[in-house]
Simulated scan of single mutants.
Amino acid sequence: MARRKLIYEGKAKILYEGPEPGTFVQYFKDDATAFNAEKKDVIEGKGVLNNRLSEYFMVGLASIGVPTHFLKRLNMREQLIRQCEIIPLEVIVRNRAAGSICKRLGLEEGATLPRPIIEFCYKDDSLGDPLVAEEHIIAFGWASQQDLDDMVALALRVNDFMSGLMHGVGITLVDFKIEIGRVWDNEFQRLVVADEISPDSCRLWDQKTGQKLDKDVFRRDLGNLADAYTEVARRLGVLPANVSPASKPTLVN
């Protein structure tokens, strides 16, 4: 079999050239990083879980009319995705106070925000992905005002879908981040949800106990990260109910 062409390698995923023009293969690694990659480890099975969970969320979004780059899952660690131009911004949606917003604004962790708050960060690891205002985004040409309006609308639809989904299995969606890509159908541009949606990119708390079921487990040394992600997958029905948390999870097709 011919060696695949590597397009890009990030902290948690690798992109390869896809089998058809306009496609990529997205590979999920077991690497875990935090604090702009200052803390690193390899969590066996993490990539498998994130691949399956991201597929689950992307398929669910597509079913309600939210466009995504996801085409299909290829195997335990890989997805076929549509090639798109990633807008160099992280779109963060916050329902409760956690993480950097607590430090910036002196908020108590867990405080319910008056409404979902959307923030933008410029994607540049060397700068620490700084928070930016809409004025910066438009002035530097990262996105137009129409793009921003569409990105906000997409982010709020993702929030509605994810919040309801998680609430149904006893989990609070505290916040999450997504990336948005541009795709073209002839001369027509549209925006799609890209990258991934997984416990790597969300804060998820058990509604009753407040137990963290996301990457904060790794950031704060709160336990086994694979166990936390396995619990999320089990509640969503991605794992059989009788499977114990394990570093090598058995996934349901």
Rank of each mutant, 00 (worst) to 15 (best):
G237C: 02
G237T: 12
F218I: 04
K212R: 15
A233I: 01
D227R: 09
V243L: 13
R219S: 14
G210L: 08
A233H: 02
L222D: 00
L213N: 01
L236T: 12
G223R: 09
G210C: 13
Q211G: 09
E231T: 12
K212P: 02
S244R: 15
P240R: 15
Q211S: 10
R220W: 14
F218E: 13
Y229T: 08
G237Q: 12
P240S: 15
Q211K: 15
Y229P: 04
Q211Y: 11
N242V: 04
V238Q: 10
G223N: 11
D216C: 03
K215R: 13
S244Y: 12
L222W: 07
L225T: 06
N224H: 10
G237H: 06
R234Q: 02
K215P: 06
T209R: 11
N224A: 02
D216A: 03
R220D: 15
L225I: 08
D214C: 04
R219D: 13
F218A: 10
R234T: 00
R220E: 15
D221N: 15
N242I: 03
N224G: 03
T230V: 04
R234F: 00
V232A: 00
R220F: 15
R234S: 01
K212A: 08
Y229V: 03
V243H: 14
G223M: 09
L225G: 00
D216H: 07
P240N: 14
R219E: 14
K212G: 04
D227G: 03
D214Y: 11
V232D: 01
N224T: 09
L213Q: 06
L222S: 00
V243M: 10
V243F: 08
T209L: 13
K215N: 07
P240Y: 14
V238Y: 05
R234M: 04
R235N: 02
L222I: 01
R219Y: 14
G210F: 14
F218D: 11
D216G: 04
D221G: 12
G237W: 07
T230D: 05
R235E: 07
N242H: 14
R220I: 01
N242M: 06
R235P: 04
V243R: 15
D221C: 05
L239F: 02
A241F: 10
V217R: 09
N242P: 00
L213H: 08
R234H: 02
L222H: 03
A226F: 06
L222E: 07
G223T: 09
N242C: 07
L213T: 13
D214H: 11
G210D: 14
F218V: 05
P240L: 13
K215W: 12
K215I: 03
S244C: 04
D227C: 04
N224K: 10
R220Y: 15
N242G: 06
K212W: 09
P240G: 12
D221W: 10
A228F: 10
D227M: 02
K212L: 12
A226T: 07
R235K: 11
V232R: 01
R219L: 12
D214L: 08
Q211E: 15
T230C: 15
V243N: 07
A233R: 01
L239C: 06
